[in-house]
């Protein structure tokens, strides 16, 4: 364990495991996107972002800005999947959540 945000211990083994799974996800997405509809590209990127935050949460590396970003990411995915408007705005809100915290 290594100190992380606010001295919460970081689970490096868990982090490594999560990142390896994310690597598989990225490669599997790249393979699939060769034949899938173009709008799945943004969806896969947001899903990757969401999986990265989950990995950081499990490893004890999350913070309020990431939690807020996670909420906007989940909304963006739902918008894209249900055909509702607002995907672009939700993605902007993800960036705002992270940049405003700096």
């Amino acid at each position: 364990m290594t100190p992380g945000i606010d001295d919460t211990p970081v689970d490096l083994a868990g982090l490594g495991e999560g990142l390896k799974r994310l690597l598989c996800y990225l490669a599997a997405s790249a393979r699939g996107l060769l034949t899938e509809p173009a709008e799945y590209g943004p969806l896969r990127l947001m899903e990757a972002a969401s999986r990265l935050i989950e990995t950081m949460q499990v490893a004890g590396m999350s913070d309020p800005a990431l939690e807020k970003a996670f909420h906007h990411i989940e909304r963006s995915k739902e918008q894209l999947l249900s055909g509702a408007a607002g995907f672009g705005e939700s993605v902007d809100a993800v960036l705002d959540a992270i940049l405003e915290s700096e």
Binding site: R21, C24, Y25, A28, S29, G32, Y40, K77
Partner: peptide, 12 residues
């Protein structure tokens, strides 16, 4: 299930 999810981009 976790392993399947890592190679299934369609599984959210």
């Amino acid at each position: 299930l976790t392993a399947l999810k890592s190679v299934a981009p369609g599984l959210f």
